[in-house]
Structures are given as C-alpha cells and as structure tokens.
Design a protein around this nucleic acid. Sequence first.
DNA 1: CTGAATTAGTTGTTGCTTCAACTAACACTC
DNA 2: GAGTGTTAGTTGAAGCAACAACTAATTCAG
Lengths: 168, 168
Amino acid sequence: METQWLTEDERAAWLRLVAVVELLPGVLDSQLRADARLTHFEYFVLAMLSEAPERTLRMAVLAQRTNATLPRLSHVVRRLEGRGLVERFPCPEDGRATNARLAAAGWDAVVAAAPGHVDAVRSHVLEPLTPAQVKQLRGIGDALLTRLDPDGRLSGLYDPDRAHENPS
Amino acid sequence: METQWLTEDERAAWLRLVAVVELLPGVLDSQLRADARLTHFEYFVLAMLSEAPERTLRMAVLAQRTNATLPRLSHVVRRLEGRGLVERFPCPEDGRATNARLAAAGWDAVVAAAPGHVDAVRSHVLEPLTPAQVKQLRGIGDALLTRLDPDGRLSGLYDPDRAHENPS
DNA sequence: CTGAATTAGTTGTTGCTTCAACTAACACTC
DNA sequence: GAGTGTTAGTTGAAGCAACAACTAATTCAG
C-alpha cells in the first residue's frame, strides 16, 4: 500500500503541534517544581483528589483520571504519602481496593500551588491566543480526543457531562 | 495580587490541551517502539540528520533542532552509535565540536520507520480534523510557540524561512 | 463449596532524563 | 603569550516512568 504523505498545511500544523507537545510539559513542570516542589503529575493527582467527594478516590479511578498506569500511580502516591500530602487506606466495600484521600497538608499544597499554576497556564497558553483561537482550540481538542481517548477515560477532565460514563 | 481565574471557554480549551499533551506522546512512542524499535525522540534525531546536508550535524545544532539538552542528546547519540545508526567524529573546523552523521543503517531505519509513523500521525491527528481545523491548528501553534519558544530554537522545524536566524 | 479467572495493587528492575561537575578547546584582553 | 572567560561536549549520579512479575481479594461456573 502506498503511503500517503502530508500536504504542506498538514505538515505545518503537525510540526507545530509536535513542538508544543514537546515544550509545554517542561514549562509546566518547571514552574510547579520551583514554586511548589511538585511535578505536574503530582499536582494533577492532588488536584483530582481535591475535587472528588470526601477528597477520596480509589486508586484505579484516580489512575484513569490522571491517565496513569496503576504501577505509576502506586509509586507516586507512596511518595506523596511519605510527604504527608495523601493518605491511603483499604476500601471497606472491596478488600482488593485501596482508597487515596487528600490529607490536610495536601489540600494546603494544592491551594498554595493553584494560583501560580493558573498564572503559568494563562501566560504561556491562553494569553498568546485570541478568544476565537481559544474556541477553535476547544474544538480541535475535542476532535483529537475522539481518537486519542476513544473510551473517554479522561473525559471527566475535559467534559463534566460525560463523567457519569465511568461510574466504576 | 488577585489571581485571575479562567473563563469557561478557557478552562475547556486548556483541559483538552492538557489531555492531548498527556496522551499524544504515548501514542507516537508506542507505534515507533513496536514498528521500528525507536523512541519518538530517537526517530526525530535520525530524521533531522537525514534531512541535513551530508546527513551530518554538529551536536549543539542537533540539540536545538530536537529541543534536547546537550547531555540528553549526548546520551542518546552514544546509544544510537552503539547500535550502528549514527557515527560521531570531531569537527575539523572547531576542535571543541563533535559532528554526528547518519550511518547507512540509520538511513535505512528512518526509511523503514517513516511510512508507519506518518500513518500514525495521519490517523491520530490529521484525520479527525477538518481542513479548516488543520489551518487553525497551524495558527494556534504559531501563537503558542511565540511564548514557548521565543528564541525560535525549534523554528527550523516549523518554519524554514526563519532557520537562518540561528546561524551558530 | 471448590477451583479458575478476573480485578486491584504493589514491588523490583531497567532505561531514559535531568542536574551537576568536569574536561577540553577556542576567543579575547592586556 | 599568559590569563580569563566562554563554548562544546562528556560523564556520573539521582529520580521518575514503563514493564513484568507477583500477591491478594472477588466473582463466577459447575
């Protein structure tokens, strides 16, 4: 089968997307590391817990919301627990499961880190864009995620209306 | 100073971008690892060399083009050299510099990997988008990169017209 | 109720990235 | 031409992520 190469428009769009995907994580990570001693992923874990009922989530659910594998999450939560930001306890309903709950210090950390993080997002991502481009970006994101995240594993993040689709 | 929070449009766009940035690297990496035994970054290094004159680039230039730190590139090129895909030799003009040249096996690897990679890019990124969205993405990418890459370190990638701005 | 299969998590190993320290070569000044 | 500073690159150590192997609890078939 003949490979179909990219048009000029496609190549231009693709190269820019690659560059953004390559650069953005570093920018976010640096800001959070410097200001809050947290990696972006750790911040994300804490943020997801902070928005959950009882600030508590089962490890498997938390892994889905953060797009992490269970081993990765297990290591990270162990370290966060060691720093007193999170607590783990066995789930009463299911002996196999473990619940992760945001500790008071973890809540404080999220509250302290959020403003700086939002500022970074605003200055690096939102401000360079026109309001029209922000809307376009939402549409493009939706389109891409139908392919990148067909099961909607992260949908709780970007579309609250669909959150109920993962009731587990 | 009061933190300015995000509007609904901004939050929606931002959350989708985060999800894309989180998911896309994994998709690209998996495809290349499975089909070509290459990480996305390794592929990128080989691809940049394949497009350079003499298939040769100085380490520092290659680092800029691939958005890598010099230590990172040094490690990666050493491993690629160990696999016979790249050769290193001292730069004749500048005793401090090292040139990296794509070896024959490296060229073969790029040629073998490119079609599958392009297919992956097409099916995961380009096909879900309308032609209008592809154009929008280019514009959004340009806007974001003015902030993420103000010095145009990667500009050689996404805008050949600006490549001369880094004559070093 | 017993045994097989599935689900939930943890742990250990390996590999890659980053940071810091270092060497070597060039450039510029006096 | 000696000394200082800068540039190019390598190396080693530390930390995080991916993968595989493992334990333990639940479910389901018969």
